[in-house]
Design a protein around this nucleic acid. Structure first.
Length: 552
RNA sequence: UGGGCCGUCGCCAAGCGGUAAGGCACGGGGUUUUGAUCUCCGCAUACCCAGGUUCGAAUCCUGGCGGCCCAGCCA
């Protein structure tokens, strides 16, 4: 490993922070926060934000809070909060403190009263539809609500009644009094509070009045002393409002909102709404389905925290609308697993081989390295006997050019074992190959054969001692690089995103493996033990295939 | 269309007025009991386009062109 490997790459946000540190803008403090709404599971796009926020705090001896942005009780739940905490931890990050926007409901209310008293907020009785009409359009300025001139005292009374539950949903809304002619639509008297007569998973029935994101987020940041409030590009237009609120209320902290591009990964969707739809309509088996781009899905698929952090580092942080190829993610997990996953042998589609000159009842215990380059990973014993299983694809009656596996009359090396020669091909009435009769060269164990070169090496398992296993092979969830671009993203769902292989056999050493263990099944792919796997029924998930440059 | 933001290799991405880093992908050689890994080599006279400023421009200026975001009582 080179010394620069762990050096975070330069990006414009780190530059801003470096400059702020130099100018002592925040008294040398760096305080960030990761603020998910607990309305779904975290996905790899959140991982990008997590790595950025926690990473920046770590690099600068700063702090990073986990804050649940729970201002909309209709979509949020404690279950999602639990899942989010688990995922952030699993990625390897420790928050300085955990907070909730709902922790600040009382303060937020007081600040709203402040705004009303300053004549900067008013209670509006316009309906949602009317507000939309009054707002104007991109090219036309809006017009002021008749309630905009409501006297302060009346606003105060009405707002109090809103809190006390005197009104129904939608009867009134609290609005900031800014500028109905602003070219920035977010500044045309945005809603600050709306009435929601709904139970909140944390505050119960204490409130029927809930603050909006724009009003809540900046104040929450300020209360927590956040110095750099990092969010995605779609909030750029909200920054003037973020700053407006903090300027108008009585608060000294001035966090700086900085926006970066959200992650867009090919062949998947990243919006929580769409991910939830996949789960709800049973197109996948849950938020942690290994095909999902969720942290939970990637974990079950066999991804490591290291690989995901590496991915976030490799893609960088910019303001450019970028599309990341799946190959980048795959390269990250291969790098980690190549280094750290022990090797094993598994035959996906078995072809039976009888070694005619091998003693009938003999079972040899061969010692095989767990990693070809890393001695420290040790060895394991693999039984070898007269009847073995190889991959159907590793034998060919009509071999293509440069085929270096087993052919009729040809020799091949059995990985970690002997060189065998195919003496006879047994077919059924339809001509289908059902068995091979081979001979073995007893002088080739750990030695090159004498007087000839044997090029190919293939994997195998002993028929008798091997274990049956179910293999889950995954392909992208969608057939189009950008499913969101379709009129209906469901129409480009990949019908072959999951293939279940039932006839596979794995080597005996895997008998007592446990959930989440990762292996490289040599010459095939990296697999991990699924959480539903049991000793009686082994299930492996294919994390990612091996790179394959043959016939490219 | 009003406003905001963005445009450097196929895909990401450094670069911040001194003569185009790196990664992924791709092509080729070597090593190899994994067609894996590892290793070596190749891969933008060129930075959306056009003008301008400058001894010198991807970097500064002007004007175009292209893309993304905003009209929730969602976040």
């Amino acid at each position: 490993m080179s010394t620069t490997e762990n050096q975070p790459s330069a990006n414009f946000i780190r530059q801003i922070i470096t400059n702020d540190l130099t100018s002592n803008k925040h008294n040398g403090n760096v305080a960030t926060r990761f603020p998910p709404e607990p309305n779904g599971f975290l996905h790899i796009g959140h991982a990008k934000s997590i790595c950025l926020n926690f990473g920046i705090a770590q690099e600068n001896q700063g702090t990073c809070n986990l804050r649940f942005d729970d201002t909309n009780p209709e979509k949020e739940s404690a279950e999602f909060m639990k899942a989010i905490e688990k995922d952030v931890n699993w990625l390897g990050f420790k928050w300085t403190a955990v907070y909730h926007s709902s922790d600040y409901f009382e303060q937020l209310y007081d600040y709203a009263v402040q705004l009303i008293k300053k004549g900067l907020a008013y209670v509006d009785s316009l309906s949602a539809e009317e507000i939309r009409e009054y707002r104007g359009t991109l090219t036309q300025i809006g017009k002021e609500s008749p309630d905009r001139s409501r006297p302060i005292a009346e606003n105060l009374t009405l707002f109090k009644k809103m809190r006390e539950g005197d009104f129904a949903n939608g009867d009134y809304v609290l609005r900031a009094k800014i500028d109905m002619a602003s070219p920035n639509i977010n500044m045309r008297d945005p809603a600050l509070y709306r009435i929601r007569r709904t139970h909140h998973h944390r505050t119960g029935n204490d409130w029927c009045l809930y603050p909006m994101y724009d009003y809540t987020h900046c104040i929450s940041d300020a209360i927590e002393g956040i110095t750099h409030s990092l969010c995605t590009l779609e909030f750029e237009d909200h920054r003037p409002l973020y700053d407006w609120v903090l300027e108008k209320i009585q608060i000294s902290c001035r966090p700086q909102q900085i926006e970066f591009a959200r992650l867009q990964l090919e062949y998947t969707v990243m919006s929580k709404r769409k991910l939830a739809q996949l789960v709800l309509e049973n197109h996948v088996h849950g938020w942690d389905d290994p095909r999902m781009p969720t942290i939970a899905g990637l974990r079950r698929r066999g991804f490591t925290p290291t690989s995901i952090r590496d991915f976030c580092e490799r893609i960088g942080i910019t303001k450019k609308d970028a599309w990341i190829k799946i190959a980048v993610l795959e390269s990250c997990i291969r790098d980690d697993l190549n280094e750290n996953a022990p090797r094993a042998m598994a035959v996906i589609k078995p072809l039976r081989i009888v070694i005619e000159n091998y003693p009938d009842e003999k079972v040899e215990s061969l010692t095989i390295k767990n990693h070809p380059q890393k001695e420290e990973m040790g060895t394991r014993n693999v039984p070898f006997s007269k009847v073995i299983l190889i991959e159907q694809d590793d034998f060919s009656l009509e071999p293509p050019a440069k085929f270096k596996r087993l052919i009729e009359g040809g020799e091949v090396r059995l990985r970690g074992s002997y060189v065998i020669k195919c003496e006879k091909v047994i077919t059924d009435e339809q001509g289908k190959i059902i068995e091979l009769r081979c001979s073995y060269d007893e002088n080739t164990l750990g030695k090159k054969p004498e007087g000839r070169k044997v090029k190919g090496v293939i994997h195998w398992v002993s028929e008798q001692q091997s274990l049956p296993a179910e293999l889950h092979l995954y392909e992208p969830l969608f057939t189009e690089a950008n499913p969101e671009e379709q009129v209906n993203f469901m129409e480009v769902l990949n019908p072959k995103s999951l293939t279940i292989v039932t006839g596979a056999r794995v080597e005996a050493s895997l008998a007592n493996t446990s959930a989440r263990n990762r292996y490289q099944f040599e010459r095939c792919a990296y697999f991990c033990v699924d959480t539903d796997s049991r000793a009686e029924k082994l299930i492996f998930n294919r994390t990612v295939s091996l790179r394959d440059t043959w016939l490219k």
